[in-house]
Design a protein around this nucleic acid. Sequence first.
DNA 1: CTGGGGAGGGGGCCC
DNA 2: GGGGCCCCCTCCCCA
Length: 639
Amino acid sequence: MLDAMEVPSHSRQLLLQLNSQRTKGFLCDVIIVVQNALFRAHKNILAASSVYLKSLVVHDNLINLDHEMVSPSIFRLILDFIYTGRLGDAEPTSEQLFGAVLAAASYLQIADLVSLCKKKLKRNGKYCHVRTAGYPGYGSLGRGLRATTPVIQSCFNSTPRPVDIPPGEPVNPINTHCGELYASVSQGNQLHQHGLCPPERHCSPLCGLDLSKKSPNRPSNQLHLDTTESREPSIPIRPDSPPVSASVLTNSSSYKDQNHSYPKLDNNSTPQAPHPEPFRNSVSNSHLRTESRDLMFDWMKPEPIGNYVDESDREKDLDREEKGESSPLSQQPRYPSIESNEPDDDKSTSEETGSSGDPSPSSNLERYHCNHLYDPETYGDNLYVCIPCGKGFPSSEQLNAHVEAHNEEELYHKDSMEPPMPFLDKTSQSLGDIIRPYRCSSCEKSYKDPATLRQHEKTHWLTRPYPCSICGKKFTQRGTMTRHMRSHLGLKPFACDACGMRFTRQYRLTEHMRIHSGEKPYECQVCGGKFAQQRNLISHMKMHTTGPDGKPKLDFSDSVYAMAKFTADHLGLKQEKAAEILSQTSHFLNDPKTIESLYPLAKFTAEQFGLTQEKAAEVLTQSQHLGGDSRIIERFSSP
DNA sequence: CTGGGGAGGGGGCCC
DNA sequence: GGGGCCCCCTCCCCA
């Protein structure tokens, strides 16, 4: 039918339009996660191009590709091919590139691209006899092509660009022998037989950003890779860090265009392998990944990983350090300023790093283990390097912003980065101090354990450590960011069995189910009104506590409610629990300490409702639970 | 038109 | 990292 098109240019125009839409993100309905890079595309186009991709996009708006099988940069080329029918303008001699594309295209089952690569390789006479080639100059495609393989924000500039291989990259010995070159179906099955892939999806990703939570058919041991975080190495801010300074470095071997900069191609340079082969073994902490890697080495060499450390591995390694354990990574030469006693907490943000200029994980990650001195190959186009943390930036502005962030965080964490110590002032120890001994140095809040305290302390940071990869909004907790991402992607994993309505959170579903059950567990203590959702009770309570003039009004029940809330806030309890404790207090009034502990409640009540403390105490003790205990009134009358 | 309730959704944050 | 809860905003419906 298409052969008989009356307008011959129709298909071409259509494809041009679609590609234009893709580059703008217009109507894109799927995000493809490849290692740490995100790509947007149209499900229809992917499904029409690849049976494999079709099987993935049918289920999800977010799909993960195994980066062992296809690197971000290669996938970028493939995506360009899908939308343009062209394989970029790769140099005729870059048969190693075609080999990698061929392998990935085979994995993704894109027959046309497989044929094209074979053709190009045959034309170069390399197709069948390059088995052991350790292509000089051909290194990490992930790095070499990172300028052409931006993360999702940068995908909008996606016209096919020349593929340059940077000099001095570690060798990536792609095995392009005819028989072993690409992942045939049988090879995929081989992986299935080894239990590495779920049968529902061929070679399902071994790691990726799983935002769908309940997505069917997902391997249970799938790693949850925070794309943002893995793109951003941590910036540890330590009290003992050297003074922040920055140096501007230049690199005459790089050139830039308006938006991007590319490492200059230099095929003559000697490949570097910053770390010897044995280090490879320390790279993955996932036995799953390790096993699969071993398997896949039979037919395809992955991206060079000698200098690559997965961020999750790195975090775990540092976690082990926190616990005083040794680890393979910790035995490696360490980039000095990267050390941190809180690796998870000190992630930088894309804004401060200008990471769109350097989304490459390898370039970032290798800094953990590579030479501290500036090296063009190490920093690529990020020529502006922050000395304390070793981060590179594409512009001086971004570097300056980053340095400012250092200063701000140092200011904020000069004290809080001290190892949290339990609050153990015996002289003024209250019940709250015993229950929650870890007190925030920036505010009066206290916590049961140091991890929670650390988590809380992030809320005081000026720079939130977890930015959204899509909109850039920053969060203090990774989980919040992940949840937020779900809203971008329209992922609602929690479905109501009764009406089919879907929710982004389990808790919402629980709330919603009360509509069907008629359950209204939240009761107003003032009027007895019942509510299915607590928030609506709270909203309702405002009606009781706020008068027509907007000023607070007081009745007895309100004060009990306020006291319960106060108790809840200060003891970190649920309001329900606090009210329960409050109601039981009268049993313990023989203990002078208990009376003492009630003092803040009366003080709060007095302040909240404009009463004298004595009057507040009277209100308090008139509670049927407290029985008008004279000891309380006596205590509160004398502040 | 307004006030109040029901409910969806997002962010903060503690456990 | 995930679950759960709290708070807020918002929209819709209804009296």
